[in-house]
Amino acid sequence: MADFSLEDIKILRERLGTGMIDTKNALVEAGGDLEKATELLRLKGAKGNAKRADRSTSEGIVAAKVVGNSATMIELACETDFVAKGEKFVALSEKVLDAIVAAGAKTVEEALAAQADGKSVADAISEEAAIIGEKFELRRVTVIEADAFEIYMHKTSRDLPPQIGVVLGYTGSDAETARGIAQHISFANPTVLSREDVPAADVENERRIVEEISRGEGKPEAALPKIIEGRLGAYYKQVALLEQDYARDNKLSIAKVAQDAGITVTGFARFKVGA
């Protein structure tokens, strides 16, 4: 029998987070050599990563960090909520986020190439996935530039890490109102800041749809332009933040709430795990 102790098993499990049987088998194969056993377990995990490549990652965590005039938010995905709420996965998300911020990465490609403790973020994620035995994926990265920020992280379940994250960039000093708007974004899910930011192709497509619907309802020809514009207004309320009715007071638009508070929303991002 290989020469190793229960203490060796404990050390290796704490180092890699592997199961008892896999750890013991690796030590047997390595003749009790901790470093060789570590290598064997990592190679086994890497092979498992390849097999898991086609699996879906519908769980995970969102995390954000502000440094100076930049706020970075990421979505790190995994397969199960059990892993998502684990200490190792949460710690990995923090490590990955710190590395991305330090590198100034703004895209997933740049983020994966960033360095984390002497290795790339891609390798750090892959190694941890191999140890835990699930597929991990850095799905999204965004960077918002602004004078001031409000970060809102929402838990959809008490025992899970944040599943919805919002970064709001603004000018002004009313942090309380900014937080209220960030919370509104988490609920209302706007996709652009203002109606001017909606792609022209999307507007024209919506115009075509509402015109077809209005004509199908037999609306008078003379009334069609006004009806179509009214329905386009409803569409803008769905997608443009400043057009939306404030969740805390639907008699006020977000634009009016911001104006009354003396703040100007300059940008935002919203991530929802798996969406």
Rank of each mutant, 00 (worst) to 15 (best):
Y152F: 12
T72Y: 05
N205L: 11
E150N: 15
R231D: 10
R140N: 09
L12D: 09
K226C: 03
K85R: 10
A148E: 15
F89V: 00
D54A: 02
T156F: 09
V210S: 07
E127V: 03
K10I: 08
G216C: 11
D174L: 03
Q183C: 05
G230C: 07
E196G: 15
L76F: 11
E128N: 14
A148P: 06
I181Q: 09
V198D: 03
A2D: 09
A91I: 09
P225K: 04
F4A: 02
G180W: 04
K251W: 02
A64T: 05
D260R: 12
S70K: 15
A255F: 02
P162I: 11
A247G: 04
V198S: 01
I125Q: 15
S253Q: 05
T171A: 13
R42A: 07
V192Q: 02
Y235K: 14
M73R: 13
N189S: 05
R248I: 08
S186C: 07
G172R: 10
D3R: 04
K51I: 13
V203T: 04
I131Q: 15
A223E: 05
R215S: 06
A50W: 02
L16G: 12
Y236A: 08
K36M: 08
E110N: 14
A105Y: 00
F268M: 10
E7A: 14
A2K: 08
P190A: 03
R270K: 15
A175W: 06
I131W: 11
R231G: 13
A102C: 02
D245S: 09
A2T: 06
Q244V: 06
S173Q: 15
K106Q: 14
V28P: 05
V166T: 12
G262E: 03
E7S: 12
P190W: 04
S70F: 11
R158Q: 09
K155W: 02
A234R: 15
R231K: 14
